[in-house]
Every structure is written in structure tokens, then in C-alpha cells.
């Protein structure tokens, strides 16, 4: 069996096979959040989604939101910066856990 086949993205709605109503509720919510301009433009939302796609390491979402960013007028510089935001957040989150390590070191009398 193949994993992460790009063609599978088109089959997303099949996830609703055994629970059509819940899937419809999801798509309505998803489209309302990402598919329209609101307080954020559709381009800004696409850049956020691209960053999240990288942080969550979802190849389907990276494919979809790279195209979506282009089709909403973002350019590769902006898209790369969005990926750096995701990467720096992940690095910061990892490093921030160093305080937890310090707390434990202190509790053990090693700090």
C-alpha cells in the first residue's frame, strides 16, 4: 500500500462515507473559515494555513496551500517567510521546554 499519494487529496470527501452529516458540517466550517475574506484576507489565511501545514507536516495541505497562496497573490518570498514562522515557533517551543528541564535539574539539586 502507498502512503501519502497526492491523488488522495481529491478523495478527501470520501472520509464522510460513514458519517456524511459530520463531514458536511466540517466542510461548511472549513470553507467558511478559509474560503472567504474576513477580518483576515483570503491571502493571509492561506499563508497561515501554509505555515500550519508545515508545522503539522501534512503533504496534502502543503500541495493545496502552496497553490492557494499563489492563486491569492502571495509570492515565494512571503510563503518562505510563513514557513520560517512555523519553523521558528517550533524551535521556540522546543527551547522553551528547557525551562522545564531547569526546574527538574533544580528539584534534583543539580542547578
Amino acid at each position: 500500500m502507498d502512503y501519502y499519494d497526492s491523488k488522495d487529496l481529491k478523495r478527501f470527501s470520501e472520509v464522510g462515507k460513514f458519517s456524511e452529516e459530520l463531514m458536511k458540517k466540517f466542510f461548511d466550517y472549513y470553507n467558511a473559515v478559509t474560503g472567504e475574506d474576513g477580518a483576515l484576507t483570503k491571502r493571509e489565511k492561506s499563508l497561515i494555513a501554509l505555515a500550519v501545514a508545515h508545522a503539522k507536516k501534512c503533504p496534502y495541505c502543503i500541495d493545496a496551500y502552496t497553490t492557494q497562496c499563489l492563486e491569492t497573490g502571495a509570492d515565494p518570498e512571503q510563503m518562505t517567510e510563513a514557513v520560517h514562522v512555523a519553523a521558528s515557533m517550533e524551535a521556540g517551543i522546543t527551547l522553551m521546554h528547557g525551562i522545564q528541564m531547569h526546574n527538574t535539574l533544580q528539584k534534583n539539586g543539580a542547578l
Binding site: R43, T67, L70, E71, T72, G73
Partner: peptide
């Protein structure tokens, strides 16, 4: 890919 909206 398709063009972004002309006005924006």
C-alpha cells in the same frame, strides 16, 4: 495556477 483576483 489561476490568477489571483484582479482588484487585489
Amino acid at each position: 495556477f489561476l490568477p489571483a483576483p484582479q482588484e487585489t
